Structure formats: structure tokens, C-alpha cells
Computed example of a mutant assay.
Amino acid sequence: APHHHPGGHHGGGTPAVMTVNGFRRGESDGHFHSDGELIVALSTEWFARGRRCHRRIRITSARHGRTVEARVVDECDSRRGCRHNIVDSSPAVWRALGLDTDVGEVPVTWSDP
């Protein structure tokens, strides 16, 4: 279940664009992931050569301030067309934030928990 931090710190997050990723093909960290897992891929710079791999980050919807924690499992490779400000998230992350994956891109902020 998503953690709700009552009166949690707002601000201090990094603005990003959240996109939808189906991780089912197992091409991320070599493990197979399901769309029901709260997982993300981060843009190259934020992935920090794997330093953030398997760490958790907190993602907050810029629209309504709902927050979810997800685990970083992959790099969203900017050499392959991923922009530098992307948090590429599984459908479960979108659902936890009450967002519709059909929208495709939403503004969020993220931070280390």
C-alpha cells in the first residue's frame, strides 16, 4: 500500500516528467517485473551509473500532491531517446497516484525518501 506521510515535507523534490513503462520483458535489471510492482527507471544522470539502482525514491504528483514510493530498477537511457528529466514508471505507480496511464506523461517531483 502507498505510504501516506501526514504533513510530509513538500518541496525539496526534483521536478520531472513521469512516463509509462511496462517492465514485463525483463530487460531492466535482468529480473522479470510485473506491472503490479512499484518500480521506475530514471534518466541517465539521476540513475547515477547505478548508484540509485534498487534504492527507493518518493514520487509526488504535481497535480494533487499524492505520494508513492517506488524502487529504481533501470536506467532510462538518454542516448536512446529518453529525455533527461524522465521518471519512467510502471502502471502500478500511476495507479497508486490515482493517475490514468492513458495520459502518457504527467508532471511529478521526486526525492530520496
Rank of each mutant, 00 (worst) to 15 (best):
H33S: 09
H33N: 12
S34C: 10
D35T: 03
D35Q: 04
G36M: 03
I39P: 00
I39S: 03
I39L: 06
V40T: 00
A41Q: 02
A41P: 00
A41Y: 01
L42E: 02
L42H: 04
S43K: 10
S43Y: 05
T44M: 15
T44W: 14
E45C: 01
E45Y: 08
E45A: 12
F47P: 06
A48F: 10
A48H: 15
A48C: 14
R49M: 11
G50L: 12
G50S: 11
G50T: 12
G50H: 12
R51T: 13
R52N: 11
C53P: 04
H54E: 14
H54T: 11
R56C: 01
R56V: 04
I57D: 00
R58P: 04
R58W: 09
R58Y: 10
I59F: 10
S61I: 02
S61E: 03
A62G: 05
R63F: 06
H64C: 06
H64W: 10
H64V: 03
R66N: 07
R66A: 10
T67I: 09
V68Q: 11
V68K: 09
V68Y: 08
V68S: 08
E69A: 04
E69R: 08
E69M: 07
A70K: 02
A70C: 05
R71C: 01
R71K: 10
V72E: 01
V72M: 03
V73L: 12
V73A: 03
D74Q: 02
D74L: 02
E75K: 14
C76R: 00
C76P: 02
D77G: 03
D77Q: 07
S78C: 04
S78P: 00
S78E: 08
R79E: 06
